[in-house]
């Protein structure tokens, strides 16, 4: 067994704690503006969503367009439960609500997984899209969810620290899964389903595993989202939200967890920081999707990619830095 506390893990541990400490100090010390402090929780929620969708899109290689639907199921289930638990300490209620929301979303993920696992490629996209749309329609038309005007008066308990903890745990679990035997099996399905089946990988089991885990974390993100805003509106979980999460994953790089974290952070902050930009947000998203795909997969852009390689740029930078002392 490999040593758990090796150099790399220690580095990540320290980084995690330092980032939390700095952000916590900045926000408690009122260094960050009111607007920025309000952005911390949405950033965390979006990171959880992006990382969990990456498990399906990046590692399993299926396109799911209903991630906002899972988020909605979790959000409504969790927040409805939280509202009934006013006697408990608020934090405990939130944790129970998150678990319940996650489990509810996972259960729906299982139900959606049943038809999806029999389909291939394009059909998966359209069925998950359809499910997402059905969920929004149902939430809009049910009495218990408050209908189109939304579920109101949810206790607002989600603060930066709890979101941060949940986010770190989510990234940790998905990263561990991705690097494990199970994760390699999931990636093998992405590379070639027939070949994976022929070496004895249980396709149905692993597809379902990825789906359910992804839905579980999306549900938790939904509860945090609701508990942060205090109100849930069905419309905010439509197709556009699913596409937004997909853009985080695609921009960060499919199959790259640090990429998802960085992309979700930047794309959540950018529209807030640049008010003028927010009109063009969706336009920019669409261009990001097309450009990333063309740059990544088209043979025509191979030469551009070779020039714009991080490793090459890093090497160039190193060379320059090493040359300087010689000149002096």
């Amino acid at each position: 067994m490999k040593k758990l506390l090796n150099k790399k893990n220690l580095f990540y541990l320290i980084l995690t704690v330092v980032v939390w400490g700095v952000l916590f100090a900045l926000s408690e010390g009122r260094v960050l503006s009111y607007q920025m402090r309000n952005m911390l929780v949405p950033i965390g929620v979006n990171i959880i969503l992006a990382v969990s969708l990456n498990l399906i899109v990046g590692f399993l290689g299926e396109l799911a367009l209903g991630h906002a639907g899972f988020m909605a199921v979790g959000a409504y289930a969790g927040c409805l439960l939280i509202k009934t638990m006013s006697g408990l300490p608020p934090m405990l209620a939130l944790v129970i609500g998150m678990l319940a929301g996650g489990l509810a979303a996972a259960a729906i993920g299982f139900v959606i997984g049943l038809p999806v696992l029999r389909l291939r490629g394009d059909y998966v996209a359209i069925v998950t899209l359809a499910f997402g749309q059905i969920i929004v329609t149902l939430l809009t038309n049910m009495k218990v969810t408050g209908g189109a005007s939304g579920l109101k008066e949810i206790p607002m308990e989600a603060n930066f620290t709890i979101v941060y903890i949940v986010m770190v745990v989510t990234v940790l679990i998905i990263a561990t899964l991705a690097n494990s035997r199970h994760g390699r099996a999931i990636s093998a399905i992405r590379e070639n389903e027939v070949a994976a089946r022929s070496i004895g990988i249980n396709i149905t089991y692993y597809k379902m595993l990825a789906f359910v885990i992804s839905a579980f974390f999306a549900g938790i993100a939904g509860v945090l989202y609701g508990s942060n805003l205090g109100i849930l509106i069905p419309r905010s979980f439509d197709y556009n939200k699913s596409i937004e999460i997909l853009v985080f994953v695609v921009l960060g790089g499919m199959g790259s967890l640090p990429g998802s974290v960085i992309a979700a952070t930047i794309l959540t902050l950018l529209p807030e920081l640049l008010r003028e930009f927010s009109d063009y947000r969706m336009l920019a998203y669409s261009i990001v999707l097309i450009a990333m795909m063309l740059l990544n997969a088209s043979p025509r852009f191979e030469s551009v990619k070779a020039k714009l390689n991080w490793r090459r740029l890093w090497a160039l930078l190193k060379q320059k830095l090493e040359k300087k002392p010689n000149k002096a």
Binding site: E62, L63, G121, I243, L246, L283, V288, I290, M293
Partner: peptide, 13 residues
């Protein structure tokens, strides 16, 4: 997957 994401991008554009 790549083609589908591109197509969604075009639709959004």
């Amino acid at each position: 997957l790549t083609v589908l994401i591109t197509a969604i991008g075009v639709s959004y554009l």
